[in-house]
């Protein structure tokens, strides 16, 4: 049969970026960040909540708090969803666990390693710390995490829990994947980075998915099978994405930012006042 004829049109899907926060922290300062209270203007988090958390979770939760602190008001978080897209989260805990295993055996394996240091853990921690009852999900885990996260967050927001009012994408990464010493400590003092982006449905979006105001994300799948090269630069991706978002929110310069995937494109867009759609920097 001709599958092309049975394909549904690949309509672009758009949502609005309601806010974002970026947190960068050197490995040597993660201990301090782990015990730091939420910033003014953000909801409080339970004391010592992050004491067993993975490094990605520490920066990821603080990025969400930073975004909330920067917002004009406290949103009702109870119907928010979370998609976290860490790149190789849990590696330090895994290395420490494995380094101890031959000498110490099973008793040295922390009971926290699975619940707190796995791919789902960043999203779970944000959901628990902030009382979010929308779905939460970890995605990616590797070099394509940012693209997978953008796609999954858009999917959950627009097609997941019908009561969901917003979806957070929390992308995390080391600036450069650190080499670890034999007991699992990072060599040098690398930066762990997280970008939290609050997405809301754009009920007034145009046919190309662009929201009527503010920056937005548009997912545009290909209409047919294609095979295009992947982009592997999640650290640069987070940094470039955060910079583009900041420029967009300031409403000044516009320049392109997109993730080109083999199956389509995820694009940051913004509609300047009284002009047509333009891509955002």
């Amino acid at each position: 049969m001709n599958h092309q004829s049975s394909s549904r049109p690949a309509a672009p899907a758009g949502c609005r970026v309601a806010g974002h926060g970026l947190v960068e922290c050197r490995a040597s300062a993660l201990g301090d960040l782990r015990s730091r209270a939420a910033p003014a203007g953000a909801p409080a988090i339970p004391n010592r909540f992050l004491r067993h958390a993975d490094e990605h979770t520490v920066v990821g939760l603080h990025a969400v708090l930073a975004a909330l602190a920067a917002g004009p008001s406290q949103p009702d978080l109870s119907r928010h969803a979370v998609v976290a897209a860490p790149c190789q989260s849990g590696r330090l805990a895994a290395a420490r666990t494995l380094a101890q295993l031959p000498a110490g055996g099973a008793v040295t394996v922390s009971p926290h390693v699975v619940p707190q240091c796995s791919l789902h853990s960043v999203a779970g921690a944000v959901s628990v710390a902030l009382g979010m009852h929308g779905p939460h999900l970890g995605v990616g885990g590797g070099p394509d995490a940012l693209a997978e996260g953008l796609l999954a967050a858009t999917t959950l927001l627009l097609h997941g829990d019908p009561e969901c009012t917003a979806a957070w994408l929390v992308a995390t990464d080391w600036d450069e994947e650190p080499a670890l010493d034999p007991v699992g400590n990072p060599q040098g003092d690398p930066v762990c980075r997280a970008l939290a982006v609050q997405l809301v449905a754009a009920g007034d979006a145009t046919d190309d998915g662009t929201p009527s105001h503010g920056p937005g994300l548009v997912v545009q799948p290909s209409a047919r099978q294609e095979s295009r090269p992947r982009l592997h630069d999640p650290a640069g991706g987070i940094v470039a994405f955060a910079r583009a978002l900041a420029i967009c929110h300031a409403g000044t310069t516009l320049a392109p930012w997109a993730v080109d995937c083999p199956w389509g494109v995820i694009r940051l867009v913004a509609r300047p006042p009284s002009h047509g759609v333009r891509e955002a920097a």
């Binding site: 789902h120 779970g124 779905p135 999900l137 970890g138 995605v139 885990g141 796609l151 995937c261």
Partner: peptide
């Protein structure tokens, strides 16, 4: 498979 490929983790 050339479409979207995603790893999902919810424990």
């Amino acid at each position: 498979i050339t479409g979207p490929a995603v790893t999902a983790a919810a424990a």
